[in-house]
């Protein structure tokens, strides 16, 4: 029984985003968006999101007055977690945590194709009268993507930005 200090070495560094992580990002249904205000008080909400494969960004759509938008206006660092739960065994849990910078983008400036994809993905939830005019999009540009499956951890760092 030996005590070991934090295992930084157990996280494997990868040069490109692992495929499994991309799959989770494409297929996940709910994203958990963590924001923080200036005094570093965290806030987390469950949200709908859409992953854009070409630009490697996450888009989340929310109402303009919400607390998360308020937080992002002051502090653009955010963290988005998308995971697959397994109630039986922790070894089969997998998930992705994206840490990055958030940009607030007006809905008019979002690529139409993406908006359509988003509306299609959540058609049962959003209904027909979805008030896009009152919404604002949060574009998250990943800086690091952590992916875990069971006890294996992988980390990808965005070198281009």
């Amino acid at each position: 029984m030996t005590l070991r200090l934090p295992h930084y070495d157990s996280t494997k560094k990868t040069t490109k985003i692992p495929d499994d992580a991309l799959n989770i990002l494409r297929d996940g249904f709910f994203a958990y968006l963590g924001t923080a205000d200036l005094v570093c008080e965290p806030h987390v909400t469950a949200m709908f999101y859409i992953w854009d494969d070409d630009s490697k960004t996450i888009h989340l759509i929310t109402s303009k007055e919400s607390k998360k938008v308020l937080n992002i206006r002051r502090n653009t660092r955010v963290s988005v977690t998308i995971d697959q739960r397994d109630p039986k065994s922790p070894a089969r849990n997998s998930g992705v945590m994206v840490k990055g910078r958030a940009l607030l983008v007006e809905m008019e400036l979002i690529d139409d194709e993406l908006t359509v994809k988003y509306l299609e993905k959540y058609v049962e939830f959003l209904g027909t009268g979805y008030p896009l005019g009152l919404r604002i999009a949060i574009r998250v540009v990943p800086q690091t993507i952590s992916y875990w499956k069971g006890t294996n951890f992988y980390r990808w760092k965005n070198r281009s930005s």
């Binding site: 958990y32 968006l33 963590g34 924001t35 923080a36 200036l38 570093c40 965290p42 806030h43 987390v44 502090n75 660092r77 955010v78 963290s79 988005v80 977690t81 995971d83 739960r85 849990n93 998930g95 945590m97 840490k99």
Partner: peptide
């Protein structure tokens, strides 16, 4: 920490 949130299940 340092204005960077961190979310995990």
């Amino acid at each position: 920490s340092k204005k960077q949130p961190h979310v995990t299940p």
